[in-house]
Every structure is written in structure tokens, then in C-alpha cells.
Amino acid sequence: MLQIKNLHASINSKEILKGLSLEINEGEVHAIMGPNGSGKSTLAAVLAGREIFEVTQGEVIYYGKNLFEMKPEDRARAGIFLGFQYPIEIPGVSMVNFMRAAVNEQRKYKGLTPLSSSDFLKLMREKKELVEIDSKLTNRSVNEGFSGGEKKKNEIFQMAMLEPKLAILDETDSGLDIDALRIVANGVNKLKRKDNASIVITHYQRLLDYIVPDFVHVLYKGRIVKSAGKELAFELEEKGYDWIKKEIGEE
């Protein structure tokens, strides 16, 4: 579904991604790990279409289309979901209105009619149960006054509502206690299907105790320097990132 080829991207003329290539197919879970500053969040932002990053080279093909020719909202409507590392607060906009707008935009893109109020509320109830999110959260304004853990759970809830083809979870595990981590991971696992895929970006191996990846990639200095199966995550946890640096001939 997604082919990233030799991707270069920079911010304020500083190159962050320096020739990243990756292929993702339906049904796969990819974990991207790497030390701070290696470009993990930049990759997520570039795929979602954040304009502060400039793509200088390379291409990304999503279901046969040039991703960079799609506006951020069209990427979202076409099934790309970004779980934010720091979800944004939008005071005064209720979760219900926000999600209804999002769901109906996606339906419009697919040529479907908007959901009726009752169908929409029913869908919300189902998904709330699925991801074990507190009803109280969905009655409030988008992320306003949510704790760190609540914000992350809310991202998973939105993901459940929108049923993306490709979910990119940017350090969704950071700042979570073990219960919240379990809820987030369960949500991701329950939403896994044969025809969708996810990219799980994480700094720690911890999340991968709950979400079992098919592939683990190590991102370092803007490039993927090592790819392997889930066992790579354990090796990293044990040996740290210095081991990778040595292996690729640094230090």
C-alpha cells in the first residue's frame, strides 16, 4: 500500500530524513525505533502532510498515488491516520462534533451519505466500548483538560472511529502508565485487520510487549540502518542503540 523511496526531508534547511526507504503492505505491523533526533517523528509528520517540512528528494506512493500531490485532509480521508505524540487541544469544540465532521468527511470522500445522528451516536458507543475509553472524555471538548494518558487513549478512540488503512502511531506509548499502555495496545490489536497496516513509532521496546510487530526498523540519522523481525526489538532493549552505531561503523 505504501512505498517510500529515498525520502529526503528538511526543516529550516536542515536535513532530517536522508534517504529513507520502506515498503508497507496490507496486514503488516511495522515498528520504527531509534534514538532521539533520528527522524522518527519527522517521518510521521511528512507522511501526514505537515507543511513545515520540505520534501527535497524521493517519493512516496500510497495505493498507486503520489502522496505528495494530496492535501493533508485528503490523505486523512483516504485512510492515513496519525496518532499524535502530543495531541492538540481544541477548546469549545466537542468531541462529538469533531468526530462527526471527521467521519462524514471521510464518508463524503468515499461517496457515501453522512451518518444520521442516531447511527453516529451508536457508532461512537460501540467504539468507546471497543477501546475502553471513558464516556466522560467524549462529552468534553477535544483533548481539553485531558491528562497525558487520556489524550493518548483519545487518539486510539479516534482511530477506531475512522478505521484507517494506514495508522501511524507516533510515540503513542510515551508518558503512559502500564494500564493506559495496555488499553492503547489492546485498541491497536483489536483494530488490526488483513487489509490495514500500522507503523508504530516508539523509543522503547516496552510497547512491543503488547503490540507484536512483523518488522522492526532502526532509524538512525535520517535513514533506516537495520531491519529485522520482532527479535530486533529485544536485542535493542538489551544492548542499547550504541550497538547499532558500532555495527554501522560509527564510534
Binding site: 486523512a76 492538540i88 487541544e89 468527511e105 475512522l162
Partner: peptide, 27 residues
């Protein structure tokens, strides 16, 4: 209204103009 709020809406499939409308009307 921050660029990050608008992008958050964009990322959920809501266009920039609709995002501004949503935020203003909430306000």
C-alpha cells in the same frame, strides 16, 4: 487559532476552512 489546531483537524479529514468554522463556532 494555531496552525497545530488546524493541522490536527486536517489530519482527521477536515479542511482548513471547515476547521476554522468548527473552532470559531465552538468558541
Amino acid at each position: 487559532i494555531g496552525e497545530d489546531q488546524i493541522f490536527y483537524c486536517n489530519q482527521r479529514g477536515i479542511s482548513t476552512e471547515d476547521a476554522v468554522g468548527l473552532i470559531v463556532n465552538g468558541y
